[in-house]
């Protein structure tokens, strides 16, 4: 038998198919989000099942998470992404005590108990300034790829100071910095530092090691280093960080 975890995030829908007894991942898929979430999710699940050669009838349970979770009628249960990320990280890296998840449009700091249960959490879900969206805006404004940001930040001499708490106004700041002949490398480093500083601020003094970094932004070069610098502690990037939420949802479906 199999179980499915669906993470209906703000930017992408992620699906993970696992075998119930072994908890092995036998299928995965990612699709862009859209208006017809239920249909998009359903179609993605069908694709994942077909590629894995698994019939829908062999799927015991589907758990949905993410902002769009309540819109998915294919789910048997919905669980918040906080719980799912904690579960997913704990499965990959038992012993993790703090999870930092930075997605496209939100960011979270979760503190876990020894056994992986969530002790408490802090969420930034009303301001894009501490999220992947900020990096997208910057990359777009600087005509760069997200994948190049790490290399650019590494060449920075003195990260620019970004003061805005709003991504919209921060975009204006970037224009201003370019006009003041600050290098693109310094600007990128400044943005990454600003995001990292906001995460560190959200984390406060609640951070307990080991710390795992997950979410789509963990894939962007330079962000791990920026976070480590802001927090003054080492981080481990989760394997397949974009899928952690879906993994946690699938594991909860199987449990």
């Amino acid at each position: 038998m199999f179980c499915i975890g669906v993470d209906a995030g703000s930017r992408a829908i992620k699906v993970l198919l696992i075998e119930v007894d072994s908890l092995a991942i036998v299928g995965r898929g990612v699709a862009g989000q859209g208006v017809a979430q239920a249909e998009l999710a359903s179609r993605l699940v069908d694709e994942v099942l077909e590629r894995a050669g698994v019939a829908l009838a062999d799927v015991r349970r589907v758990v949905a998470t993410g902002y769009g979770r309540d819109a998915l009628d294919l789910a048997h249960t919905t669980v918040t992404e906080i719980t799912c990320h904690a579960r997913g990280v704990h499965h990959q890296l038992p012993g993790t005590r703090t999870v930092i998840d930075i997605g496209g449009q939100d960011s979270k700091v979760l503190r876990l108990e020894q056994g992986g249960a969530v002790r408490d959490f802090a969420v930034n879900d009303r301001c894009a300034a501490g999220t992947g969206r900020f990096l997208e805006v910057v990359a777009s404004r600087l005509d760069a790829d997200l994948g190049d940001l790490g290399r650019m930040a590494a060449r920075a001499r003195r990260p620019s100071a970004i003061s805005s708490t709003c991504v919209v106004f921060a975009e204006s700041e970037i224009v201003g910095l370019l006009a003041a002949h600050e290098s693109v490398e310094d600007i990128v480093a400044g943005v990454q530092s600003a995001i990292a500083a906001r995460i560190a601020s959200m984390a406060g003094r609640r951070v307990v090691e080991p710390i795992v970094f997950t979410g789509g932004v963990a894939l962007i070069p330079g962000m791990k280093e920026a976070l480590e610098s802001a927090m003054g502690r080492p981080l481990t990037v989760a394997g397949d960080p974009q899928m952690t939420g879906a993994l946690g949802a699938a594991l909860l479906a199987a449990s």
């Binding site: 970004i162 003061s163 805005s164 700041e173 970037i174 910095l177």
Partner: peptide
């Protein structure tokens, strides 16, 4: 006026 205003100086 934030504590370090370089970036908002044009505005």
């Amino acid at each position: 006026v934030p504590s370090v205003s370089n970036a908002v100086s044009p505005a």
